[in-house]
Design a protein around this nucleic acid. Sequence first.
DNA 1: ACTCTCACG
DNA 2: ACGTACGTGAGAGTT
Length: 691
Amino acid sequence: MALLGDTIDNIPGAKGIGEKGAAELIRKYGSVESALDHAAEVSNKRYREALQQQREQVLMSKQLATIATDAPIDVKPQELELRPPNGAALAELYRELGFNSLLKELGSEAVASSAPASSESAAKADYRQCASVAEFRKYVTELPRKEPLAIWLNLETGERESEGFGTHISSIEVSSKAGEGCSICFDEKGEALKALAPLLTDSKRLKIVHDPKLFQLLTGRAANIRYATQLLSYLLRPTTANHNFTDVVMRQFNVMLGGGPGERADYLQRLVPVLHEQVSEQKLDGVYEMIDLPLAPVLADIERTGVRVDPQELGKMSQTMEKEIRRLEKEIWKLAGLEFNVNSPTQLAEVLFDKLNLQPNARRGKAKARSTAADILEELAAQHPLPEKIIEYREFAKLKSTYVDALPKLIHPETGRLHTSFSQTGTATGRLSSSDPNLQNIPIRSELGREIRAAFVAEKGKVLLSADYSQIELRIMAHFSGDPVLVQAFRNGEDIHARTAQEVFGVGPLAQTAEHRRAAKAINFGIIYGLSPFGLAQQLGIDQKEAAKFINAYFTRYRGVKEYLDHLLAETRKTEVAKTLFGRIRPIPEINSPQMQLRNFAERTALNSPLQGTAADLIKLAMINIDRRLAEEKLEAKVILQVHDELLFEAPTKERGKLEKLVQQEMEGVHKLAVPIVVEIGAGPNWRDLE
DNA sequence: ACTCTCACG
DNA sequence: ACGTACGTGAGAGTT
């Protein structure tokens, strides 16, 4: 509720009433708890909100009371001496609490000595180490054909920090039955992998792996990988950061893997029924089978292909930027009256706030009192010429260090191209992420930044083609809410921000100013992010009260959206889970937290996740379909990047027309919504000059 | 290892 | 009175 613009603070004159009213109710019902029980019957939202706040305060004061009590202490100082921990007991506690990282830190000795079921089941396991490739080949060919085959690839532990493209296999483990496992050390010629090859390409034999994308990168396209424990784990717990095999095993079985021959392959077998059961229970089968699993080999191909960047172009930029940075640095030193490290926020804060005594406008929280972030510097710019120079310096410094200088170093020596790594299990919403290097945050918003895009080029005889979804998240909002105004606007192909301006400010397209449209655009962004008066006010540089008025006006015109959001919040409070159109979930237990801050955060998350997550599902589906179509039509064109709502292709110039049609068809037709899905396409020699 | 800042959708 | 727009990854400085 607080999100929708009717918090106590934003209702004129309600602030005092709310608190008093709450106190009154508490007196009437005897305690905060019972007053809250009756709160459901209280029609006035202000009272409900105020009661909730009272409850938080009571909880807090209870905690404080415990700390501040002048209680007798019945321990002797000697007992408080630091002693080495009881490893086994600690391991048990960590396990119980799910502190997996701490458990690992503890080391395997203590863990093993306390291991409950694990020692038992480990004793049952039948592991063997093959001494020769011949023995391995024999073992593998004698495995039962009908059983899914679990395969684990151990990697060479080289200096390369990222696995994937260009890494090598050191040993292979296989298992066709839980409790069994066989391992073979990899020879340099790759004989062991060759022994496995017939099974890999045999589509009748199901495979179990942990990381399917990595598996494809290392082995080529294996057929019929049916179970990928990493993906199953992610679908169940997308908010967990780690889906390493060891961590997944630990979470499921409370077992710390020792790494015996064949143990990992064995545990792949053990994990599958357990994880799959949970996935079915949560109705995640569809997303798994239709989206995440088939996407993995597509991503492997994209990573393997890579993208061409022109290192000489970047080299030239680096030189000119270096000069510019030195020039700005001198200028900054002169304005400051001393030489200091402009990159250091600490030193910069001293210069701005102590030496020059500049005053930020608004009062901010204590933690950020001395922030030197760009929006603060913009405020300070009215008082002194220095802040503006800092902003300029920062832009050059950022672009140079993060892109211009960093990217050429990551060009692969053999392919001459840049190979990013996509994480399919890294985000809470279902989006992908990109790293080493991150190619999903290549600059575009500033003129200088766009120059960097010009260095992303097509090979000779080829073009780059970019296709991006237009307003995809707002369209999904229109679909979910069915709001007649929003739906109609999209069906008519209107300028959506202009339409919002018309609805909220009552000004027709002709009477609109740039300011109207800008504000309307910010409101639409806010809708996607989980609207709050604070956020909108901050974005537009206006009063919170003013922002609250805009929000009220928006919800008056877009009743359907308001009703949908209210309904969604109520539903999420019950289930504590956010869901996408295709059933991907994100647990949000904090939505029922007694802490307002956590709760508000959770509410915004609950509103945003279905939109962001559904958009992610849609583009993933489109990628899978496009990959298939490109193969079917025997086109040479390849996907080389995904940037959340954009796909970048590289294709022979003569394929351009065909590709454009194919891509538009697949992306727009990926799934039928209540409103049209629109894709905008451009092509050209580099990533900057398209269309 | 953490914080701050800033690049993207 | 407080502190927040949603989701990411990386470089530089600080601890």
